[in-house]
Nucleic acid binder design. Sequence first.
DNA 1: TGAATAGTGTCTGTTAGACATTATAAT
DNA 2: ATTATAATGTCTAACAGACACTATTCA
Lengths: 245, 245
Amino acid sequence: MHEDAFLAAYDPTPYGRLALTVDAVLLGLLEGRPAALLLKRDEPPGAGCWALPGGFVRVDETLDAAAERVLREKAGLAGLHMEQLYTFGALDRDPRMRIVSVAYLALLPEHVFAAAARNGAGLLPAPIDVPWAGEAGGPVAVLPPAGSAESGPLRLAFDHADILALAMLRLRGKLDYSEVGFALLPERFTLRQLQDVHEAILGTALNKPAFRRRMLDRGWLEPTGEREAGTSFRPPELYRFRKPR
Amino acid sequence: MHEDAFLAAYDPTPYGRLALTVDAVLLGLLEGRPAALLLKRDEPPGAGCWALPGGFVRVDETLDAAAERVLREKAGLAGLHMEQLYTFGALDRDPRMRIVSVAYLALLPEHVFAAAARNGAGLLPAPIDVPWAGEAGGPVAVLPPAGSAESGPLRLAFDHADILALAMLRLRGKLDYSEVGFALLPERFTLRQLQDVHEAILGTALNKPAFRRRMLDRGWLEPTGEREAGTSFRPPELYRFRKPR
DNA sequence: TGAATAGTGTCTGTTAGACATTATAAT
DNA sequence: ATTATAATGTCTAACAGACACTATTCA
């Protein structure tokens, strides 16, 4: 096959091997706080640390397909919307060899998140401590879930803390104008639950009437006519997310 | 070195070779309209088409470093801010082999853009026709510059039209709340020029008093006290961009 | 009836668009 | 003076935050 002028100067073989992986940030809510699914690493590098589910990109699959495969094989999940987040290419990300990783982000509804934590081998649902640091975001701390044997913030392998921090920042940025807030909730939810999600992700308190107005005016919420049961006070109405056309 | 459980199942070698490149979207303004620097391809694949400057990522350089090297070697430029845009991994992007490409975006001030077009071998500054298609963006058309031998919209090689379209969309999205609008202008500029840049990128007309207020209230503009020369009417004041602290 | 939260009405300050008006330089 | 554009003032509508108020269910 004819080499063209554009690429001829950069024959890759002399420069050695480079591997490509995908890492999946699987976000959900744990007791109303943002949380991620992590895998415990038993062996080096990063033994004893926690890591994002990930895997190598095969030569015959797209990046999106690799991300979906990781989701399926590592977390037992399928059919979720996954969005490419960023590609991490530091030289020393992995001590074994040069590995560039394309990070993906998926948001898991309540019950899906819980089910994945039960079924995915070794998956730990870990709350993310999101410091309020303005637009810049800042480093996140990942805490052990209640009842875990771990103590103190979890140590994350490789640059996975950076990846998680960027995922939270992206989520924050898209929260106000996109539908991501609904992706973390069950099919039917109350406005209070929706506001709790927003507050947990943003790390700030929100004004109740203004939040209600904004959400209802947007036209994405459909009242179900039903109300939440089991409260010891006035039961709130349940809403459903209706896709905007 | 000890293979760990997480990565053991995905030894990359059985899956064949995969190459990683960077492609640079170098945006500037041509007669007040957004434009990109492109390279003419003389040989297949994509002979006769235009392509973004790009090159393979070496095993001992980061993605950012590879993007800067491409900028230097293909466009003769250095010291520009480059931002990672997206990673493109379709299977048939390049007919020769599986190539995943990390796209980068750089914004070139007026004179830098013009100089690069003169000095970069085979670089063509091509105006981008940005259809106003709401938030979704839509496909862009790249037109030949005035005086060019090309006729009709330029044919772009590989998936580079997609990359350009995404770059324009990203630019649009960041225009209102970030400093990107200033990156395309010379050091001193008038408010009218700034508004023209915004209108060209957004594809819509903007309200003049509101635009002035918003820009001045933001505190990023410093009046130089000087005025533009050579006008046949009241000369506008020249402003300078002052970095927010 | 009290407690607790759901849900609403109203006021106010901020901001953007529309439009008219004034300012200033060249000819 | 005329002309063309710069730059500003003012009115109004939309919207968000603050806060108080009413509504509804269970204990």
